[in-house]
Design a protein around this nucleic acid. Structure first.
Length: 476
RNA sequence: UGAGGCGUAGCGCAGCUUGGUAGCGCGUUUGGUUAGGGACCAAAAGGUCGUGGGUUCAAGUCCCGUCGCCUCAACCA
């Protein structure tokens, strides 16, 4: 019981105080620390390693789609933002601006990019002349800055890391297809790499990106039932191409304006991983992106042969491409178990004199806490298989948790009750802005995404004929 | 922007009502004993009490100012 209490002191109870649990977990597992400037965070090695895995997985997928990586400048002339009316209106309040440099006031203030449509649009306008230059698909990994008032590590910070892909196309159809294609890439990545089930679809006019014709999103349900926008893909139509003069000479000899898209995911995905899979003991990381996939804890390490056996096992697993750590620290085994569980390592192997004598190892899964004895012979294959199983089971478990919390409502009271219970609520919508606003006012929930392919009789707010079904949830 | 709360050792806190030697737990360092779910013993290091001023023989404590952070609300691709 005393031990139980000691454990509870480490991190807040996930069920009683989810926000505190989140803060405790990100700090205590050393994923992040706060920066000195409000709203900034330091991504520590353990957190950054997750980001590197995300980058690696996504780069492979982007390249398959014919996207090339590039880098555009951090500073953007303020005047660029004013070229697209909706865009400037949407971003102006949160843009940080450099006004002094080299000891002098600048003739034109420079925005620290909150997103790069304006500068990439400008450059594409310069580079594209012919239909032969299309499609053009570039992506950049970079930092962006948005001066947010309320911030939380990974979920919303003043500065964050992301990738932003930008594509330019000759036709509307092709650009729209690209938008949906990239959304599909994100979904496949989220489910297979992060083990996060996502709902994909279109955003309402109210919720779409400033300057877009259509915004598509992937929404994930967090442990507390709130929704997290985990990635977006925007179809810009000719809005930005017109503003930044992206024109090309088509094969029919006519000058035409291009069509553009943009799509992005950020370090917020790390927050999504934490809040989708975490439990009362801390992090639960999906094997594909876990910085450490397997930790070996020696038992009675001073007894003859234990350290040697652990090192041999480590070498074998490493040789098989498994990211493995041997914990040779002086802490007690029990301390190590709890520590590595808090850090979310998918598989733990306990190896002591008894095991070595019997030619076995004790494998503990982080996701189910299940322990199995496996033969030491062929350890690499069996650990690999176990990691695969954990990855798959984590997705299924998350999907089950989410699906149990998707409910339907046909009036405002139903939506309110639904979201208060921590559900995603599907409800009919007439399509008007007033009804959407009313739901936000009365329930604090927003329309996350269109529930595509579903229909309802009436709008849950006004009772008129429903044109669509929306998914409502409280969101991060 | 509105309301409330908090700044004392690396972290978490007590001390303030009623002014009088700067405390506790965890962590850290050293040595030893331990080891299959957060071990134990012994010793040690670590502080301009957020900051500026005032009252006083004397301020962590009382008074005034100021800065920062947190929570809730509002705002927010």
């Amino acid at each position: 019981m005393a031990k139980e209490n000691q454990f509870v002191e480490q991190i807040a109870d996930i069920n009683a105080d989810f926000p505190q649990w989140y803060t405790d977990v990100v700090l205590k597992t050393k994923l992040v620390d706060y920066g000195p400037v409000k709203g900034t965070m330091v991504i520590r090695p353990y957190g950054y390693a997750i980001w590197e895995s995300i980058q690696s997985e996504l780069n492979t997928r982007f390249k398959k789609q014919g996207v090339e990586n590039a880098y555009f400048p951090l500073l953007i002339p303020m005047s660029y933002f004013t070229k697209e009316a909706e865009h400037v209106e949407g971003f102006a309040p949160e843009v940080a601006v450099v006004t002094v440099a080299g000891g002098e006031t600048l003739a034109e203030p420079l925005a620290i990019r909150p997103t790069s449509e304006t500068i990439i649009g400008t450059m594409c306008g310069k580079w594209i002349q012919s239909y032969r230059d299309l499609p053009m698909k570039v992506n950049q990994w970079c930092n962006v800055m948005r001066w947010e008032k309320t911030t939380r590590p990974f979920l919303r910070t003043s500065e964050f890391l992301w990738q932003e892909g930008h594509t330019v196309h000759a036709s509307s159809e092709e650009a729209q297809e690209e938008t949906l294609q990239m959304l599909e890439v994100y979904k496949e990545f989220a489910e297979n790499c992060l083990a996060i089930p996502v709902m994909t679809g279109r955003k309402t006019e109210k919720e779409k990106f400033a300057g877009a014709i259509a915004t598509y999103t992937m929404e994930a349900m967090m442990r507390d039932g709130k929704s997290l926008q985990a990635g977006t893909s925007h179809y810009m139509g000719q809005n930005f191409a017109t503003a930044f003069d992206i024109q090309f000479l088509d094969n029919d000899g006519a000058h035409k304006t291009a069509y553009t898209t943009s799509w992005g995911v950020s370090t917020r995905l790390i927050g999504a991983i934490i809040m989708t899979h975490g439990d009362e003991r801390g992090l639960v990381l999906p094997p594909v992106v876990a910085p450490i996939q397997c930790v070996i804890v020696p038992i009675a390490a001073r007894k003859g042969g234990v350290v040697e056996a652990c090192e041999a096992l480590k070498a074998e697993l490493e040789g098989a491409g498994i990211r493995v750590t041997l914990d040779n620290s002086d802490n007690s085994p029990g301390w190590k178990f709890n520590e590595w569980e808090m850090k979310g390592v998918p598989v733990r192997i306990e190896l002591g004199p008894r095991d070595i004598e019997a030619g076995k190892m004790l494998c503990a899964r982080r996701d189910t806490l299940e322990k199995t004895e496996l033969p030491l012979a062929g350890a690499a294959d069996s650990v690999k298989a176990l990691l695969k199983t954990v990855q798959k089971d984590m997705l299924e478990a998350a999907r089950k948790r989410r699906d149990e919390r998707i409910v339907y409502a046909d009036d405002m009271a139903g939506i309110l009750a639904g979201v208060e219970a921590g559900n995603f609520v599907k409800a009919g919508w007439c399509g008007c802005r007033e009804c959407e606003d009313k739901i936000k006012e009365q329930t604090a929930a927003t329309a996350r995404v269109y529930a595509e392919g579903e229909s309802a009789e009436t709008c849950a707010v006004c009772g008129k004929k429903a044109e669509h079904v929306l998914v409502y949830a409280r969101a991060y």
